[in-house]
Design a protein around this nucleic acid. Structure first.
Lengths: 225, 225
DNA sequence: ACCTGAACACCGTTCAAGT
DNA sequence: ACCTGAACACCGTTCAAGT
Protein backbone atom coordinates (compact mmCIF):
# COMPACT_ATOMS: atom_id res chain seq x y z
CA UNK A 1 0.00 0.00 0.00
CA UNK A 2 1.30 3.43 -0.97
CA UNK A 3 1.98 5.84 1.81
CA UNK A 4 -0.66 8.54 2.13
CA UNK A 5 0.47 11.83 0.58
CA UNK A 6 -0.99 13.79 3.43
CA UNK A 7 1.29 13.78 6.45
CA UNK A 8 0.07 15.22 9.67
CA UNK A 9 1.44 18.69 10.28
CA UNK A 10 4.73 18.25 12.11
CA UNK A 11 4.86 19.75 15.59
CA UNK A 12 7.76 21.91 16.64
CA UNK A 13 9.37 18.93 18.35
CA UNK A 14 9.37 16.46 15.49
CA UNK A 15 9.73 18.67 12.47
CA UNK A 16 12.19 17.27 9.96
CA UNK A 17 15.73 18.39 10.53
CA UNK A 18 16.66 21.36 8.37
CA UNK A 19 19.48 23.85 8.07
CA UNK A 20 17.30 26.57 9.54
CA UNK A 21 16.25 24.53 12.55
CA UNK A 22 19.86 23.57 13.18
CA UNK A 23 21.03 27.18 12.95
CA UNK A 24 18.28 28.35 15.28
CA UNK A 25 19.15 25.69 17.82
CA UNK A 26 22.83 26.58 17.51
CA UNK A 27 22.10 30.23 18.28
CA UNK A 28 20.06 29.22 21.32
CA UNK A 29 22.88 27.03 22.57
CA UNK A 30 25.51 29.65 21.83
CA UNK A 31 23.56 32.28 23.73
CA UNK A 32 22.80 30.14 26.73
CA UNK A 33 25.92 28.08 27.17
CA UNK A 34 28.51 30.26 25.48
CA UNK A 35 31.10 29.87 22.81
CA UNK A 36 32.32 26.38 23.55
CA UNK A 37 28.97 25.19 24.78
CA UNK A 38 28.13 24.60 21.15
CA UNK A 39 28.87 20.96 20.60
CA UNK A 40 27.59 18.66 17.93
CA UNK A 41 26.60 16.25 20.66
CA UNK A 42 24.73 18.89 22.65
CA UNK A 43 23.17 20.23 19.50
CA UNK A 44 22.05 16.75 18.48
CA UNK A 45 20.51 16.17 21.89
CA UNK A 46 18.74 19.52 21.66
CA UNK A 47 17.33 18.51 18.29
CA UNK A 48 16.57 14.95 19.39
CA UNK A 49 18.73 13.44 16.69
CA UNK A 50 22.16 11.91 16.20
CA UNK A 51 25.33 13.95 16.01
CA UNK A 52 26.13 12.74 12.54
CA UNK A 53 22.73 13.77 11.18
CA UNK A 54 23.68 17.42 11.45
CA UNK A 55 26.40 16.95 8.87
CA UNK A 56 23.80 16.23 6.26
CA UNK A 57 22.67 19.87 6.47
CA UNK A 58 25.81 21.65 7.57
CA UNK A 59 29.33 21.24 6.27
CA UNK A 60 31.27 21.85 9.47
CA UNK A 61 31.25 23.69 12.73
CA UNK A 62 32.84 26.62 10.94
CA UNK A 63 29.98 26.64 8.46
CA UNK A 64 27.46 26.46 11.26
CA UNK A 65 28.98 29.42 13.09
CA UNK A 66 29.04 31.49 9.92
CA UNK A 67 25.38 30.67 9.26
CA UNK A 68 24.47 31.61 12.84
CA UNK A 69 26.27 34.94 12.43
CA UNK A 70 24.53 35.66 9.15
CA UNK A 71 21.16 34.98 10.69
CA UNK A 72 21.71 37.21 13.70
CA UNK A 73 23.19 40.07 11.69
CA UNK A 74 20.43 39.95 9.10
CA UNK A 75 17.82 40.08 11.84
CA UNK A 76 19.52 43.02 13.55
CA UNK A 77 20.02 45.04 10.39
CA UNK A 78 16.44 44.47 9.32
CA UNK A 79 15.25 45.98 12.58
CA UNK A 80 17.14 49.22 12.02
CA UNK A 81 15.08 52.05 10.60
CA UNK A 82 16.72 53.44 7.49
CA UNK A 83 14.69 56.64 7.10
CA UNK A 84 16.96 58.96 8.99
CA UNK A 85 19.76 61.30 8.14
CA UNK A 86 22.88 59.44 7.00
CA UNK A 87 24.65 60.43 10.19
CA UNK A 88 21.83 59.13 12.36
CA UNK A 89 21.55 55.98 10.26
CA UNK A 90 25.25 55.25 10.69
CA UNK A 91 24.97 55.79 14.42
CA UNK A 92 21.96 53.45 14.51
CA UNK A 93 23.77 50.73 12.64
CA UNK A 94 26.76 51.10 14.94
CA UNK A 95 24.61 50.78 18.03
CA UNK A 96 22.70 47.88 16.51
CA UNK A 97 25.85 45.90 15.76
CA UNK A 98 27.36 46.83 19.10
CA UNK A 99 24.31 45.63 20.99
CA UNK A 100 24.05 42.47 18.94
CA UNK A 101 27.64 41.56 19.72
CA UNK A 102 27.04 42.44 23.34
CA UNK A 103 23.97 40.21 23.49
CA UNK A 104 25.67 37.42 21.53
CA UNK A 105 29.29 37.51 22.67
CA UNK A 106 30.22 34.63 20.36
CA UNK A 107 29.40 36.92 17.44
CA UNK A 108 32.41 39.18 17.95
CA UNK A 109 35.14 36.74 17.01
CA UNK A 110 32.91 35.54 14.22
CA UNK A 111 32.59 38.98 12.62
CA UNK A 112 36.32 39.40 13.02
CA UNK A 113 36.83 36.45 10.70
CA UNK A 114 37.06 38.87 7.87
CA UNK A 115 35.11 40.73 5.25
CA UNK A 116 34.57 37.69 3.07
CA UNK A 117 31.65 36.26 4.96
CA UNK A 118 28.10 37.34 4.43
CA UNK A 119 27.60 38.72 7.93
CA UNK A 120 30.36 41.30 7.57
CA UNK A 121 29.33 42.02 4.01
CA UNK A 122 25.84 42.95 5.12
CA UNK A 123 27.21 45.45 7.60
CA UNK A 124 29.63 46.86 5.05
CA UNK A 125 26.83 47.37 2.55
CA UNK A 126 24.56 49.14 5.00
CA UNK A 127 27.29 51.44 6.23
CA UNK A 128 28.49 52.06 2.70
CA UNK A 129 25.11 53.22 1.48
CA UNK A 130 24.96 55.81 4.21
CA UNK A 131 28.50 56.99 3.51
CA UNK A 132 27.36 57.49 -0.05
CA UNK A 133 24.32 59.41 1.15
CA UNK A 134 26.64 61.51 3.25
CA UNK A 135 27.98 62.95 0.03
CA UNK A 136 31.54 61.72 0.38
CA UNK A 137 33.42 61.85 -2.93
CA UNK A 138 33.37 58.60 -4.89
CA UNK A 139 36.97 57.60 -4.38
CA UNK A 140 36.75 58.22 -0.61
CA UNK A 141 33.67 56.08 -0.06
CA UNK A 142 35.41 52.74 0.12
CA UNK A 143 37.95 54.06 2.57
CA UNK A 144 35.37 55.79 4.75
CA UNK A 145 33.08 52.76 4.85
CA UNK A 146 35.98 50.41 5.60
CA UNK A 147 37.14 52.61 8.44
CA UNK A 148 33.68 52.76 9.97
CA UNK A 149 33.15 49.02 9.69
CA UNK A 150 36.56 48.17 11.14
CA UNK A 151 36.02 50.59 13.96
CA UNK A 152 32.53 49.36 14.81
CA UNK A 153 33.56 45.72 14.74
CA UNK A 154 36.67 46.55 16.74
CA UNK A 155 34.86 48.31 19.59
CA UNK A 156 32.06 45.78 19.66
CA UNK A 157 34.42 42.87 19.97
CA UNK A 158 36.61 44.58 22.56
CA UNK A 159 33.54 45.36 24.59
CA UNK A 160 32.02 41.92 24.34
CA UNK A 161 35.30 40.36 25.42
CA UNK A 162 34.59 41.56 28.94
CA UNK A 163 31.36 39.67 29.19
CA UNK A 164 32.90 36.64 27.55
CA UNK A 165 35.60 36.30 30.16
CA UNK A 166 33.81 37.55 33.22
CA UNK A 167 31.80 35.77 35.81
CA UNK A 168 28.22 36.64 34.91
CA UNK A 169 27.56 37.66 38.51
CA UNK A 170 29.88 40.66 38.40
CA UNK A 171 28.13 43.79 37.26
CA UNK A 172 29.57 46.52 35.09
CA UNK A 173 30.19 49.09 37.79
CA UNK A 174 32.14 46.68 39.97
CA UNK A 175 34.12 45.52 37.00
CA UNK A 176 35.02 49.02 35.93
CA UNK A 177 35.91 50.04 39.46
CA UNK A 178 38.23 47.10 39.97
CA UNK A 179 39.76 47.56 36.55
CA UNK A 180 40.31 51.27 37.16
CA UNK A 181 42.02 50.30 40.41
CA UNK A 182 44.29 47.97 38.45
CA UNK A 183 45.20 50.78 36.06
CA UNK A 184 46.02 52.93 39.04
CA UNK A 185 48.28 50.29 40.46
CA UNK A 186 50.35 50.04 37.27
CA UNK A 187 53.98 51.11 37.25
CA UNK A 188 53.89 54.93 36.97
CA UNK A 189 57.00 54.98 34.76
CA UNK A 190 55.69 52.42 32.30
CA UNK A 191 52.02 53.43 32.26
CA UNK A 192 51.65 57.15 32.99
CA UNK A 193 48.80 57.61 30.54
CA UNK A 194 46.64 54.75 31.73
CA UNK A 195 47.05 55.92 35.31
CA UNK A 196 45.98 59.39 34.33
CA UNK A 197 42.81 58.29 32.55
CA UNK A 198 41.87 55.58 35.04
CA UNK A 199 39.08 57.78 36.48
CA UNK A 200 37.66 58.24 33.01
CA UNK A 201 37.70 54.48 32.51
CA UNK A 202 35.67 54.07 35.66
CA UNK A 203 33.01 56.57 34.70
CA UNK A 204 32.74 55.95 30.99
CA UNK A 205 29.65 54.65 29.21
CA UNK A 206 30.30 52.06 26.53
CA UNK A 207 27.59 53.23 24.18
CA UNK A 208 28.65 56.87 24.51
CA UNK A 209 32.24 55.97 23.73
CA UNK A 210 31.15 53.99 20.68
CA UNK A 211 29.17 56.94 19.37
CA UNK A 212 31.95 59.38 20.19
CA UNK A 213 34.30 57.25 18.10
CA UNK A 214 31.84 57.11 15.23
CA UNK A 215 31.49 60.89 15.42
CA UNK A 216 35.24 61.28 15.32
CA UNK A 217 35.38 59.34 12.06
CA UNK A 218 32.39 61.18 10.65
CA UNK A 219 34.05 64.49 11.53
CA UNK A 220 37.17 63.28 9.76
CA UNK A 221 35.15 62.37 6.68
CA UNK A 222 33.48 65.77 6.72
CA UNK A 223 36.82 67.55 7.16
CA UNK A 224 38.29 65.75 4.15
CA UNK A 225 35.58 67.04 1.87
CA UNK B 1 78.69 14.02 48.84
CA UNK B 2 77.21 17.44 48.17
CA UNK B 3 76.43 18.25 44.59
CA UNK B 4 78.91 20.69 43.03
CA UNK B 5 77.57 24.24 42.88
CA UNK B 6 78.96 24.77 39.43
CA UNK B 7 76.78 23.25 36.72
CA UNK B 8 77.97 23.12 33.17
CA UNK B 9 76.44 25.80 31.04
CA UNK B 10 73.23 24.33 29.65
CA UNK B 11 73.04 24.08 25.88
CA UNK B 12 70.03 25.41 24.01
CA UNK B 13 68.64 21.89 23.76
CA UNK B 14 68.76 20.82 27.37
CA UNK B 15 68.22 24.09 29.22
CA UNK B 16 65.84 23.71 32.12
CA UNK B 17 62.24 24.29 31.19
CA UNK B 18 61.11 27.82 31.94
CA UNK B 19 58.15 30.02 31.23
CA UNK B 20 60.21 32.04 28.75
CA UNK B 21 61.38 28.98 26.84
CA UNK B 22 57.84 27.66 26.71
CA UNK B 23 56.47 30.96 25.46
CA UNK B 24 59.19 31.23 22.82
CA UNK B 25 58.48 27.71 21.60
CA UNK B 26 54.76 28.43 21.56
CA UNK B 27 55.30 31.49 19.36
CA UNK B 28 57.42 29.43 16.98
CA UNK B 29 54.75 26.78 16.78
CA UNK B 30 51.95 29.31 16.40
CA UNK B 31 53.78 31.04 13.58
CA UNK B 32 54.69 27.90 11.70
CA UNK B 33 51.69 25.65 12.20
CA UNK B 34 48.97 28.18 12.87
CA UNK B 35 46.39 28.75 15.51
CA UNK B 36 45.38 25.21 16.25
CA UNK B 37 48.81 23.84 15.58
CA UNK B 38 49.64 24.84 19.13
CA UNK B 39 49.09 21.71 21.15
CA UNK B 40 50.47 20.80 24.53
CA UNK B 41 51.61 17.54 23.04
CA UNK B 42 53.37 19.21 20.09
CA UNK B 43 54.81 21.83 22.39
CA UNK B 44 56.10 19.15 24.74
CA UNK B 45 57.71 17.31 21.85
CA UNK B 46 59.29 20.54 20.65
CA UNK B 47 60.73 21.09 24.11
CA UNK B 48 61.68 17.46 24.58
CA UNK B 49 59.58 17.05 27.68
CA UNK B 50 56.24 15.69 28.80
CA UNK B 51 52.96 17.43 28.17
CA UNK B 52 52.20 17.72 31.85
CA UNK B 53 55.51 19.42 32.63
CA UNK B 54 54.36 22.57 30.89
CA UNK B 55 51.64 23.04 33.47
CA UNK B 56 54.27 23.63 36.11
CA UNK B 57 55.18 26.90 34.40
CA UNK B 58 51.95 27.87 32.70
CA UNK B 59 48.45 27.84 34.11
CA UNK B 60 46.51 26.97 30.96
CA UNK B 61 46.46 27.30 27.23
CA UNK B 62 44.69 30.61 27.68
CA UNK B 63 47.51 31.82 29.91
CA UNK B 64 50.07 30.64 27.38
CA UNK B 65 48.42 32.50 24.51
CA UNK B 66 48.20 35.67 26.56
CA UNK B 67 51.88 35.42 27.43
CA UNK B 68 52.78 34.86 23.79
CA UNK B 69 50.78 37.95 22.81
CA UNK B 70 52.43 40.06 25.47
CA UNK B 71 55.86 39.00 24.32
CA UNK B 72 55.21 39.76 20.66
CA UNK B 73 53.54 43.10 21.35
CA UNK B 74 56.28 44.21 23.74
CA UNK B 75 58.91 43.37 21.12
CA UNK B 76 57.05 45.24 18.40
CA UNK B 77 56.38 48.35 20.46
CA UNK B 78 59.99 48.48 21.61
CA UNK B 79 61.12 48.59 18.00
CA UNK B 80 59.03 51.66 17.22
CA UNK B 81 60.90 54.94 17.32
CA UNK B 82 59.14 57.38 19.61
CA UNK B 83 60.95 60.58 18.64
CA UNK B 84 58.56 61.75 15.99
CA UNK B 85 55.63 64.09 15.85
CA UNK B 86 52.60 62.69 17.69
CA UNK B 87 50.84 62.17 14.39
CA UNK B 88 53.76 60.26 12.93
CA UNK B 89 54.19 58.28 16.12
CA UNK B 90 50.55 57.21 16.08
CA UNK B 91 50.85 56.18 12.46
CA UNK B 92 53.98 54.20 13.29
CA UNK B 93 52.32 52.38 16.14
CA UNK B 94 49.34 51.60 13.92
CA UNK B 95 51.56 50.17 11.20
CA UNK B 96 53.63 48.27 13.75
CA UNK B 97 50.59 46.58 15.29
CA UNK B 98 49.06 45.96 11.88
CA UNK B 99 52.21 44.28 10.61
CA UNK B 100 52.63 42.26 13.77
CA UNK B 101 49.11 40.90 13.47
CA UNK B 102 49.70 40.25 9.81
CA UNK B 103 52.90 38.34 10.54
CA UNK B 104 51.34 36.49 13.49
CA UNK B 105 47.73 35.90 12.46
CA UNK B 106 46.94 34.17 15.76
CA UNK B 107 47.60 37.50 17.48
CA UNK B 108 44.47 39.16 16.11
CA UNK B 109 41.87 37.15 18.03
CA UNK B 110 44.13 37.36 21.02
CA UNK B 111 44.23 41.15 21.07
CA UNK B 112 40.49 41.14 20.57
CA UNK B 113 40.14 39.39 23.89
CA UNK B 114 39.71 42.75 25.49
CA UNK B 115 41.55 45.62 27.11
CA UNK B 116 42.22 43.76 30.35
CA UNK B 117 45.24 41.87 29.17
CA UNK B 118 48.72 43.30 29.15
CA UNK B 119 49.17 43.16 25.40
CA UNK B 120 46.26 45.48 24.71
CA UNK B 121 47.18 47.66 27.65
CA UNK B 122 50.62 48.24 26.20
CA UNK B 123 49.15 49.44 22.94
CA UNK B 124 46.61 51.61 24.72
CA UNK B 125 49.34 53.28 26.75
CA UNK B 126 51.54 54.01 23.76
CA UNK B 127 48.68 55.45 21.73
CA UNK B 128 47.41 57.38 24.72
CA UNK B 129 50.69 59.14 25.31
CA UNK B 130 50.71 60.39 21.76
CA UNK B 131 47.11 61.53 21.95
CA UNK B 132 48.18 63.53 24.98
CA UNK B 133 51.12 64.97 23.06
CA UNK B 134 48.69 65.88 20.32
CA UNK B 135 47.23 68.43 22.70
CA UNK B 136 43.75 66.95 22.93
CA UNK B 137 41.83 68.31 25.91
CA UNK B 138 42.06 66.16 29.02
CA UNK B 139 38.54 64.79 29.02
CA UNK B 140 38.74 63.85 25.34
CA UNK B 141 41.95 61.86 25.67
CA UNK B 142 40.41 58.64 26.90
CA UNK B 143 37.83 58.68 24.14
CA UNK B 144 40.33 59.51 21.42
CA UNK B 145 42.81 56.86 22.54
CA UNK B 146 40.06 54.24 22.85
CA UNK B 147 38.80 55.00 19.38
CA UNK B 148 42.27 54.72 17.87
CA UNK B 149 43.03 51.46 19.64
CA UNK B 150 39.70 49.88 18.72
CA UNK B 151 40.13 50.96 15.15
CA UNK B 152 43.70 49.71 14.83
CA UNK B 153 42.88 46.36 16.40
CA UNK B 154 39.76 46.11 14.27
CA UNK B 155 41.49 46.66 10.94
CA UNK B 156 44.45 44.51 11.87
CA UNK B 157 42.27 41.58 12.80
CA UNK B 158 40.02 41.94 9.77
CA UNK B 159 43.06 42.02 7.56
CA UNK B 160 44.77 39.07 9.18
CA UNK B 161 41.61 37.01 8.89
CA UNK B 162 42.29 36.73 5.18
CA UNK B 163 45.64 35.10 5.69
CA UNK B 164 44.27 32.89 8.42
CA UNK B 165 41.65 31.37 6.21
CA UNK B 166 43.39 31.36 2.90
CA UNK B 167 45.51 28.78 1.24
CA UNK B 168 49.03 30.18 1.63
CA UNK B 169 49.67 29.64 -2.05
CA UNK B 170 47.18 32.30 -3.16
CA UNK B 171 48.73 35.72 -3.43
CA UNK B 172 47.09 39.00 -2.56
CA UNK B 173 46.37 40.20 -6.08
CA UNK B 174 44.59 36.99 -7.05
CA UNK B 175 42.64 37.02 -3.82
CA UNK B 176 41.52 40.61 -4.27
CA UNK B 177 40.61 40.03 -7.89
CA UNK B 178 38.48 37.01 -7.12
CA UNK B 179 36.87 38.74 -4.17
CA UNK B 180 36.11 41.83 -6.23
CA UNK B 181 34.52 39.51 -8.78
CA UNK B 182 32.36 38.05 -6.02
CA UNK B 183 31.24 41.53 -4.97
CA UNK B 184 30.36 42.23 -8.56
CA UNK B 185 28.27 39.11 -8.74
CA UNK B 186 26.17 40.05 -5.72
CA UNK B 187 22.49 40.81 -6.09
CA UNK B 188 22.33 44.41 -7.39
CA UNK B 189 19.22 45.16 -5.36
CA UNK B 190 20.64 43.92 -2.09
CA UNK B 191 24.22 45.09 -2.51
CA UNK B 192 24.39 48.20 -4.68
CA UNK B 193 27.17 49.80 -2.68
CA UNK B 194 29.52 46.84 -2.62
CA UNK B 195 29.09 46.41 -6.36
CA UNK B 196 29.93 50.05 -6.90
CA UNK B 197 33.13 49.96 -4.87
CA UNK B 198 34.27 46.54 -6.05
CA UNK B 199 36.94 48.11 -8.30
CA UNK B 200 38.28 50.03 -5.33
CA UNK B 201 38.46 46.81 -3.35
CA UNK B 202 40.55 45.28 -6.09
CA UNK B 203 43.04 48.13 -6.26
CA UNK B 204 43.29 49.09 -2.61
CA UNK B 205 46.44 48.82 -0.52
CA UNK B 206 45.90 47.52 3.01
CA UNK B 207 48.52 49.71 4.62
CA UNK B 208 47.23 52.82 2.86
CA UNK B 209 43.70 52.10 3.98
CA UNK B 210 44.86 51.61 7.54
CA UNK B 211 46.64 54.96 7.52
CA UNK B 212 43.74 56.68 5.81
CA UNK B 213 41.49 55.46 8.60
CA UNK B 214 43.92 56.66 11.26
CA UNK B 215 44.05 60.03 9.54
CA UNK B 216 40.27 60.20 9.51
CA UNK B 217 40.20 59.74 13.28
CA UNK B 218 43.06 62.21 13.77
CA UNK B 219 41.22 64.75 11.65
CA UNK B 220 38.15 64.18 13.79
CA UNK B 221 40.17 64.75 16.93
CA UNK B 222 41.62 67.94 15.49
CA UNK B 223 38.19 69.17 14.39
CA UNK B 224 36.81 68.65 17.89
CA UNK B 225 39.37 70.97 19.41
C1' DA C 1 61.01 21.84 43.14
C1' DC C 2 60.35 20.08 38.98
C1' DC C 3 59.29 16.53 35.60
C1' DT C 4 56.96 12.09 33.58
C1' DG C 5 53.38 9.89 31.20
C1' DA C 6 49.26 7.48 31.69
C1' DA C 7 44.47 8.45 32.31
C1' DC C 8 40.09 11.23 32.15
C1' DA C 9 36.61 13.47 29.98
C1' DC C 10 35.94 15.38 26.35
C1' DC C 11 36.04 17.19 21.10
C1' DG C 12 34.81 17.43 15.48
C1' DT C 13 34.20 14.44 11.90
C1' DT C 14 33.43 10.08 9.28
C1' DC C 15 31.01 6.25 7.76
C1' DA C 16 28.83 1.74 7.51
C1' DA C 17 24.38 0.58 8.22
C1' DG C 18 19.68 1.43 8.47
C1' DT C 19 14.81 3.52 6.82
C1' DA D 1 17.26 11.27 0.70
C1' DC D 2 17.96 11.45 5.19
C1' DC D 3 19.18 9.71 9.73
C1' DT D 4 21.70 6.63 13.39
C1' DG D 5 25.34 5.84 16.45
C1' DA D 6 29.60 3.69 16.95
C1' DA D 7 34.34 4.57 15.91
C1' DC D 8 38.56 7.42 14.85
C1' DA D 9 41.88 10.54 15.85
C1' DC D 10 42.45 13.81 18.31
C1' DC D 11 42.15 17.62 22.36
C1' DG D 12 43.30 20.27 27.36
C1' DT D 13 44.04 19.08 31.87
C1' DT D 14 45.01 16.26 36.05
C1' DC D 15 47.63 13.58 39.00
C1' DA D 16 50.05 9.71 41.09
C1' DA D 17 54.55 8.62 40.85
C1' DG D 18 59.19 9.52 40.21
C1' DT D 19 63.90 12.41 40.75
Amino acid sequence: MAKPKVKRAPGPRDEALSRDRIVAAAIELLDSVGDDGLTFRALAAHLATGAGAIYWHVASKHDLLAAASDAVVARVLAAIASHATPRRAIRNIAVGVFEAVDAHPWLGPQLARGPWQTATLQIFERIGRQVQALGAPDRAQFTAASALVSYILGVSDQNAANGRMLAPAVDRATLLASEAARWNALDPDAFPFLRKVAPQLRKHDDRDELLAGVDLILAGIAAAR
